[in-house]
Design a binder for these strands. Structure first.
Length: 410
DNA sequence: AATCCACAGGAAGCCCGGGAAC
DNA sequence: GTTCCCGGGCTTCCTGTGGATT
């Protein structure tokens, strides 16, 4: 067979290849389906609490608990948009503001964000916090209206900036003449309440709604519902969805993971020009999602953390067992010198190490070696070779690949 | 039992860039 | 321009500690 016959019409074959997807959008996190399976009770519960808003009464503040991917965000947004539209019909102005506290994680920025949602212009820094608060307050108080504020991942906010902001927001009603404010706090952390001041605790959690993780069967229902819209009929093998559901159920019933898994499986199958999505595609997808998230986490690390990680990689390559903070700091400082970068203090490096730990890139446990002190033992938790390349790819670290760490101190 | 290592990790405060107001 | 505020990265200084060694 010559070249021409084997490749002629290659584009035609690619173009005529049947796509498996009808709409990939349906499988994304941002997509809100018309129907939220297995969350009817929670929706009813929230609706009951918030319905007082439509009777022009003050509504209780709500605290929502549940692990990631249990539908907290999607349900709250759904219920709020329902509330807004019903309010419109009844001629009762209802406004909702959604804030993701993982991104907006200081008191100033929460207030700034809120003020902007209500059409005020507030610089992202510069004003005294009090002024931003006043701006927001007068902005919503211009007319009689109900304002529902969703604070998603509120535990992050409290962890980082304390509970002042929540305290202020829960008390805001006493300063308002016309408008009313209710707060919905969403938290992944079940112990979150313990970090709050007692007064804040009681006012924020007047009502508590708990979202239980989905089990494998429920995840299957969710996936089936979406797959029907996302894929062509018959494009998905019988066992694909149960397998995605099973994998995700193992990770505390995370529906987002399940959807990702299904979407990536489909993408892999499509790229392979397979006629249907099969079980093996799911397994490949699982591996790929895991690998991608690690690479992404490492790639977006700040330079100092990359050098630090590089030090750990080098020490691991030299098969040092029981790498300690001291070893890492030693190698790290010499790497910095070679790369011409500032050397941070050990205290700071210790914090960066904790961050790497939090990201799951390394695992560190504090051990006591008796007379020889207390330190962390650090293990790399990611595949050495692949990650080394990702770190070396950082332009500022070029030229460090020939670096030899010192022999182990005794 | 006392000592003491090698850090962990909290607290406070510095410095910087970004921005507003005067 | 000066003076104020905010947030984030960082340093300085500090107290705390599990257990092998003395």
């Amino acid at each position: 067979m010559d070249f021409k016959t084997s490749f002629s019409g290659i584009f035609e074959s690619l173009m005529t290849r049947e796509p498996l997807f009808l709409s990939k959008e349906v499988l994304r996190h941002s997509y809100t389906p018309d129907e939220l399976p297995h969350r009817h009770n929670e929706i009813r519960q929230l609706a009951m609490i918030l319905s007082s808003v439509l009777r022009n009464e003050e509504s209780s503040n709500i605290l929502i608990y549940g692990k990631s991917g249990t539908g907290k965000t999607i349900v709250s947004r759904f219920i709020c948009s329902e509330l807004e539209s019903t309010g419109q019909k009844l001629n009762i102005p209802v406004k909702t503001a959604y804030i993701n506290c993982e991104i907006t994680d200081t008191q100033y920025r929460v207030l700034q964000n809120l003020a902007e949602t209500f059409g005020e212009r507030v610089p992202f820094t510069g004003w005294p916090t009090d002024k931003v608060y006043r701006t927001f307050l007068s902005s919503i108080d211009q007319q009689k209206q109900c304002v529902v504020i969703i604070l998603d991942e509120v535990d992050r906010l409290v962890q980082k900036s304390g509970d002042d902001i929540i305290y202020n927001l829960t008390r805001i009603n006493s300063e308002l003449k016309h408008a009313r404010v209710s707060i919905i706090g969403i938290s992944n952390d079940l112990k979150f309440k313990d970090y709050l001041d007692a007064r804040v605790q009681s006012s924020l959690s007047e009502e508590v709604v708990v979202f239980k993780p989905y089990d494998a069967r429920q995840l299957e229902d969710i996936l089936n519902q979406r797959a029907e819209l996302a894929f062509k009929p018959g494009a998905v093998d019988e066992y694909v969805i149960p397998l995605c559901a099973a994998f995700a159920a193992r990770e505390h019933g995370d529906a987002r993971k399940a959807l990702d898994l299904l979407r990536v499986s489909g993408e892999i199958a499509e790229r392979e020009s397979a006629t249907r999505v099969q079980e093996r595609h799911v397994r490949m997808a699982k591996d790929r999602i895991e690998a991608d998230s690690i690479v992404e986490a490492v790639r977006t690390l700040p330079t100092q953390s990359k050098i630090l990680l590089y030090a750990i990689i080098l020490l691991t390559e030299q098969k040092h067992r029981n790498i300690t903070t001291g070893d890492v700091y030693d190698t790290y400082s010499r790497l910095c010198k070679k790369a011409g970068l500032d050397i941070l203090t050990q205290r700071r490096v210790s914090d960066l190490l904790s961050e790497l730990d939090l990201l799951g890139i390394v695992n560190s446990t504090v051990v006591s070696k008796g007379r020889y002190g207390r330190t962390r033992q650090i293990h790399l938790m990611v595949p050495l070779v692949g990650i080394r390349l990702v770190v070396e790819d950082d332009i500022r670290l070029k030229g460090l690949s020939t670096f030899q760490p010192a022999q182990r101190r005794l």
